[in-house]
Amino acid sequence: MPDPRPQVALTDPTALRAYAHPLRLALVGLLRREGPLTATRAARALGDNVPNCSFHLRQLAKYGLVERVAGADARERPWQATALATQWEHHADDPAMQAAVDHLDAVIAKRYYERAMRWLARRAEEPAEWRRNTGPGDALLFLTAEELAELLRRQEELVAEFRPRQVEESLRPPGARAVSIAQYVTLYHPDEAADRP
Rank of each mutant, 00 (worst) to 15 (best):
T11E: 09
L152D: 12
P164G: 00
I108D: 07
A85Y: 09
Y113T: 12
L152V: 14
L187D: 00
A18P: 03
R75T: 11
P6Q: 07
A96N: 11
E146N: 05
T82V: 07
L60E: 02
T38S: 14
V179A: 02
E67M: 03
P190Y: 13
A176Y: 03
G175N: 07
A70M: 10
E34K: 05
R177K: 13
A92D: 14
L27A: 05
A92G: 09
L140I: 13
F55M: 11
V8Q: 15
T86M: 02
R33Q: 13
V159G: 05
L60A: 01
V107R: 15
E126S: 10
P190V: 13
M117E: 15
L143T: 00
A26W: 08
L57Q: 02
Q183I: 09
A124N: 08
D73W: 00
T11Q: 14
P173W: 00
C53L: 00
E161F: 09
R17A: 01
R154T: 12
L10M: 07
V69M: 01
E76P: 01
P4M: 09
A99Q: 12
Q87S: 09
H103W: 04
L37I: 00
L158A: 11
A72W: 05
G71N: 03
Y113R: 13
R154C: 12
N49M: 06
S54T: 13
W119H: 14
V179K: 08
E192Y: 05
Q7S: 15
Q87M: 09
A92H: 13
C53W: 01
A45H: 10
Q98P: 07
P78N: 04
L23N: 06
A160D: 15
L120C: 14
R44W: 08
H103L: 13
T144W: 05
R41H: 15
E76K: 04
A109V: 08
Y112C: 08
I181D: 04
A43T: 05
L187C: 00
E67N: 06
D94T: 02
P95Q: 10
A128V: 09
L30S: 07
E76R: 05
Q166T: 07
L104R: 11
P164N: 02
A96S: 10
A121P: 02
T38D: 00
K62F: 04
